[in-house]
C-alpha cells in the first residue's frame, strides 16, 4: 500500500515552544487513521502542517506525492478545523454552496454534503442560530463534499450525540471505501477502536504508530485507554 502522507523529521516551533520534535510517520492511502493524544500534544499542529498552513522549522511532508500545501493539492484535500470555520451569518446551504464553488463542485454536491452530515432539514437555517454540534457538522459538510482524496479532520465528532457519532464514523469508513484517505484527530479513546491505524503522540513525539490490535497486544491489554497509559508510562521509564 502506498502512502498518502509521509512526514519526515518534522520540527515545528510555535513561539518559543517546540511543538513537534522530529516526528516521522506515514499514513497509507484509503485508510482511516486516528491521531490521538492529550490536548496540547501537537495534534492540531501536525494537521495544520499536513494541509500546508503551518510554518515548519525543518523536516519534510509529502502529501499525495506533492510537498504539503502545493497548489495542485488545494482541490484534493479537505480540511476541517477544530473550531467550526463557517460563516455564522450565512445559512447552512449558502455556506456549503460557497465552499463547493471553491472546490469546483456544483450546488447538488453541496446539497448532498449537507444531507450527509444530517442537516438536510436545517439547510435554510443561519449557522449562527444552530446548536454547537450542528454548527460543527455544518463545518464538516464543507470539508467532506465531493469525496476529496485526503480528508484531514480535527476533532469532527466533538459535541455530537452517540447516534450521530456512530453515523459520522460509518460515513468516514464509506469514504475510505471509495478511496479517500482520512486522518482524524480525537482525544476520546473509545473512537480509537474505529480506526484502521492509530498514531499516538505526546508532547510532540510519536509513541505509537500501529493498528489498534497491535497497540492492544503490545501493551498487553484489551482496553485502549489502559493501553495508551501503559505505553506512555513505558516511554517515561525508558526516558
Amino acid at each position: 500500500m502506498t502512502s498518502a502522507i509521509e512526514v519526515r523529521d518534522l520540527v515545528v516551533e510555535r513561539g518559543k515552544r517546540r511543538v513537534l520534535r522530529g516526528l516521522t510517520c506515514a499514513i497509507p492511502r484509503g485508510s482511516v487513521t486516528g491521531l490521538l493524544g492529550p490536548s496540547g500534544s501537537g495534534k492540531t499542529t501536525l494537521m495544520r502542517a499536513i494541509v500546508g498552513v503551518q510554518r515548519v522549522r525543518s523536516g519534510s511532508i509529502t502529501v499525495l506525492g506533492e510537498p504539503a500545501g502545493a497548489p495542485p493539492l488545494r482541490r484534493k484535500v479537505g480540511y476541517l478545523t477544530q473550531a467550526p470555520s463557517v460563516y455564522a451569518d450565512l445559512t447552512v446551504r449558502e455556506n456549503a454552496r460557497y465552499f463547493a464553488a471553491l472546490y469546483g463542485y456544483d450546488a447538488a454536491t453541496a446539497e448532498r454534503a449537507v444531507a450527509d452530515v444530517g442537516l438536510a432539514g436545517a439547510g435554510g437555517q443561519l449557522v449562527g442560530t444552530l446548536s454547537g454540534g450542528q454548527r460543527s457538522r455544518a463545518s464538516l459538510a464543507c470539508a467532506i463534499m465531493g469525496e476529496p482524496e485526503l480528508l484531514v479532520l480535527d476533532e469532527p465528532t466533538v459535541g455530537q450525540d452517540p447516534v450521530l457519532r456512530d453515523e459520522l464514523w460509518k460515513q468516514f469508513h464509506d469514504l475510505a471505501g471509495k478511496g479517500t484517505t482520512l486522518l482524524i484527530s480525537s482525544h476520546v479513546m473509545d473512537e480509537a477502536g474505529r480506526c484502521e491505524r492509530l498514531l499516538l503522540i505526546r508532547e510532540g513525539a510519536l509513541i505509537a504508530d500501529d493498528t489498534p490490535a497491535a497497540v492492544r497486544e503490545k501493551a498487553g491489554t484489551d482496553d485502549l485507554d489502559e493501553a495508551f497509559l501503559r505505553l506512555i508510562r513505558a516511554q517515561e521509564v525508558a526516558a
Binding site: V53, P71, R75, T81, A83, P84, L102, Y103
Partner: peptide, 13 residues
C-alpha cells in the same frame, strides 16, 4: 479570527 481565512487558503481561492 474565526478560522475561515485559514480554511479558504487551503482551497483554490
Amino acid at each position: 479570527t474565526n478560522g475561515t481565512l485559514e480554511r479558504l487558503l487551503t482551497t483554490r481561492l
